[in-house]
Amino acid sequence: MKASAGGYARASSLRDALEMLAASDGSGRVLAGGQSLIAAMNLRLSAGDFLIDISRVGELAGVSETADSLRIGALTPHAEIGRNPLIRHHATLLSQAVEFIAHAAIRNRGTIGGALAHADPAAEFPACVLALGATLHVEGLNGTRDIRAEDFFQDIFETAIEDGEILTGLSVPKAGADERQVIEEVARRSGDYALAGVCLVKRTGGHRVSLFSVGPKPILAKNAMAALDRGDVEGAVEALKAEIDPPSDTQASAAYRRHLAGVLLRRAAARIEGGNA
């Protein structure tokens, strides 16, 4: 189908974009890479929006580092996340995840900020930032806010971004020397949304396990984490299955997704212990 947009404006700066958003009376939609938004518009799931194109706002792109964290601009494309040496070194979970996301042409244009703000519960990046304990940065005309990943994802396609705010980037803690990060997922075909997926981070402070495609938002599996901290993988699998309430759809039932989450956690744990993560 053909998209129906109410109007289009290209922002030249973040300030410019925020002013446009304020002026749009709640009908404004921030357009970054557009790999989800334009698809939704072409499906007429979304019509009449006033599009604020931030894709040229240079201040929102790029990766930089501080002593203990990486700052990733919201407009950094998936492909760049996959190849950026800082990310590959300090937050390998994100670069691993890129290989699972859609296809090359989509990774060229899709952005990490767009993926996080879209908050598709089946997407990889939201679960990754949850497992990494990242902080998301949003900005409105009234100032900036930092939101913990745990607080950012609220429901299906719903985040803590308020009206008038734009996600500007995220900060990810640098991996410790002995930290291990792995992502495991099962999709029917390469690049499809996962039927279920698991992110596992093992750091000095303990394990972090997040899941995607098993509920309305990415889930931090705290009981499973505790069991892994005790070295009890099977206990973690059992805890994990109790912590999630997956949906049933035409691709898979809740029971299958729950089973799969356990299999994937076992595999992730084995990879971590195997040391090739």
């Binding site: 189908m1 053909k2 998209a3 947009a5 289009y8 290209r10 357009l31 557009g34 790999q35 334009i38 698809a39 072409n42 499906l43 599009l51 194109d53 894709s55 492909a79 859609a102 296809h103 090359a104 042409a105 989509i106 060229n108 244009r109």
Partner: peptide
């Protein structure tokens, strides 16, 4: 498909392969 799945619209934009149906003409300025 016009929803980014089939790849029939793939074109080269600023040196990269891009889905032509997932980019607005307005963005190509």
């Amino acid at each position: 498909c016009e929803h980014g799945v089939c790849g029939a619209c793939t074109i080269k934009v600023n040196g990269e392969a891009v889905r032509g149906c997932l980019m607005l003409a307005a963005q190509a300025d």
